[in-house]
Simulated scan of single mutants.
Amino acid sequence: MKAAVIYASTTGNTETMARAINDVLKETGNEVVYGTATEADKALVTGCDVLLLGSPAMGAETLEDSMEDFYSAIEGSIKGRKVGLFGSYDWGDGQWLRDWEDRIKNAGATSAAEPLMVHLTPEDSDIEKCKEWAKSTVK
Rank of each mutant, 00 (worst) to 15 (best):
M1V: 13
A3H: 06
V5I: 04
A8V: 01
A8T: 03
S9T: 13
T10W: 02
T11S: 13
T14K: 00
M17T: 10
A18D: 00
A18V: 02
R19T: 14
I21G: 07
D23A: 15
D23G: 12
V24K: 07
L25S: 10
K26C: 12
E27S: 15
T28L: 04
G29V: 10
N30D: 12
E31W: 05
E31H: 07
V32H: 02
A37W: 00
A37N: 01
D41R: 09
K42I: 05
V45M: 10
T46W: 02
T46P: 04
G47V: 05
G47R: 09
C48E: 12
D49F: 06
L51E: 11
L51H: 06
L51R: 11
L52M: 14
L53H: 01
L53F: 02
G54Q: 04
G54D: 01
G54I: 09
A57K: 00
A60I: 03
A60N: 10
T62W: 00
T62P: 00
T62H: 08
L63F: 00
S66Q: 11
M67P: 04
M67Q: 05
I74S: 02
E75A: 14
G76I: 01
G76C: 05
S77Q: 15
S77R: 13
I78Q: 01
I78K: 06
K79G: 12
G80E: 03
G80N: 05
V83R: 08
V83N: 06
G84Q: 09
G84E: 08
L85H: 02
F86W: 08
G87H: 09
G87M: 11
G87D: 02
S88H: 00
S88A: 08
S88E: 01
Y89R: 01
W91A: 10
W91F: 14
G92P: 04
G92N: 05
G92S: 04
D93A: 11
D93P: 00
G94W: 06
W96H: 13
L97Y: 07
L97M: 13
R98E: 13
E101L: 14
D102N: 15
R103L: 12
K105T: 14
N106Y: 04
N106Q: 15
N106C: 02
G108V: 04
G108R: 09
A109L: 09
A109N: 07
S111E: 10
A112C: 12
E114C: 03
M117Q: 14
V118Q: 05
H119D: 09
H119I: 09
H119E: 13
L120C: 08
L120T: 13
T121A: 14
T121S: 12
P122N: 01
E123G: 06
D124W: 06
D124H: 06
S125N: 13
D126W: 10
D126G: 10
D126T: 11
E132K: 15
W133L: 12
W133Y: 14
A134R: 05
S136H: 08
S136K: 14
T137P: 11
K139N: 14
K139Q: 15
